[in-house]
């Protein structure tokens, strides 16, 4: 038996409007083991959130289309489930935390009600029991349980995010998807929330997909790291492999563009050009036009995902015999 909790295979998601087709997620595959934390990094528009919504079955209907692929949770394909079946899984086996805790909570319901709502929906129990669970969850995320009767506006941003986490974990899910859970928070509060998430994860053995654009958060929290660019998974591996030996030119460039805390750099590295528009992706490697290592072949072929050993995969021509070496002619433009 495999110990994979989640396995995503060749997932393709498009958004279709009257004018254009946005290829948001293009053929991505990855596995998540039980108890593992996977960091999903990339810039705005890379398809991180779409991937998460695809797994959750929460893509906006009509506009978003899952073209192909599968998302298996313990061997059952979530994409083939009915809405009814999905509702039983969402909140119970997979939960999601959204970026902005201010908008994720209902302003006219007490936080106790909002946590017990999930419990009542999924577990057969009395209201009193659900409320007791809600208080227990509040305690677990470090909020005085007596405050279950308070409304969201009575809490600060960091505490609201704790409540959102309490709701997500109320039914002890197997998988938690956290979409930029700390981006809206101050660093000191972020440190508290991350510490808490790590402890809860250890205690409950929850698997986690952590979506973030902060490479520092990935280094601290995750076991594996997946780098997305233009809807593709361009690099995947253990955090040690990806951080110490980044292989994809995009990953490398991303590192060099962050100001360092302990080194003086005169000028920051700039990735030339703009983030590739997912509404008009080239037929070749989507990073080729911004890549310092691109050769003629890179602007002809779409590279395949290549295993460099030890599960470290990269989607780049550089590591194949087809690569012809650097060609110059890159200019910095805005």
């Amino acid at each position: 038996m495999s110990d994979n909790l989640l396995s995503v295979r060749e997932l393709v998601i498009h958004y279709e409007t009257d004018e254009e087709v946005v290829e948001a997620v293009n053929n991505i595959s990855f596995d998540l083991k039980k108890g593992e934390i996977l960091g999903l990094v990339g810039e705005t528009g890379a398809g991180k959130t779409t991937t998460a919504l695809g797994i959750m079955g929460l893509l906006p209907p009509k506009v978003a289309n899952v073209i192909s692929g599968s998302v298996e949770l313990d061997g059952n394909d979530l994409l083939r489930m009915t809405d009814r079946q999905m509702r039983k899984i969402r909140g119970k086996r997979i939960s999601m935390i959204f970026q902005d805790p201010m908008t994720a909570l209902n302003p006219v319901k007490t936080v106790g009600d909002q946590i017990s709502e999930v419990v009542l929906l999924h577990d057969r129990c009395s209201k009193a029991e659900a409320l007791r669970r809600a208080q227990e969850m509040l305690g677990m995320v470090g909020i005085v349980p007596e405050r279950y009767r308070d409304y969201p506006h009575q809490f600060s941003g960091g505490m609201k995010q704790r409540i959102v986490i309490a709701i997500a974990l109320a039914c002890r899910p197997d998988l938690l998807i956290a979409d930029e859970p700390t981006t809206a928070l101050d660093v000191t509060i972020q440190a508290q929330i991350l510490d808490m998430m790590r402890n809860l994860q250890k205690e409950n053995g929850t698997s986690m997909i952590l979506i973030t654009h902060d490479l520092g958060v990935v280094a601290e929290m995750c076991d594996h790291c997946a780098v997305m660019y233009a809807g593709e998974l361009v690099e995947y591996g253990t955090v040690e492999a990806v951080f110490d030996h980044p292989k994809h030119p995009y990953t490398e460039a991303l590192y060099r563009s962050i100001p360092s805390l302990d080194k003086d750099v005169e000028r920051l590295h700039v990735i030339p050009g703009m983030v590739t528009d997912p509404a008009s992706l080239p037929a070749y490697c989507s990073f080729a036009d911004r890549c310092g290592d691109a050769c003629g072949m890179c602007r002809t072929l779409d590279p395949k995902v290549l295993d460099l050993g030890g599960g470290h995969t990269v989607k780049c021509l550089k590591y194949t015999s087809k690569w012809e070496g650097k060609t110059d002619g890159k200019t910095e433009s805005a």
Binding site: T188, A191, G216, A219, I258
Partner: peptide, 24 residues
């Protein structure tokens, strides 16, 4: 010092002693 120690750094080998502030 607490503010500085709270910053996550993108280096997997550097595990720092973190000073987590209580409260807000």
């Amino acid at each position: 010092r607490a503010l500085l120690s709270a910053i996550p750094i993108p280096n997997v080998h550097e595990k720092r002693e973190r000073m987590v502030l209580k409260g807000e």
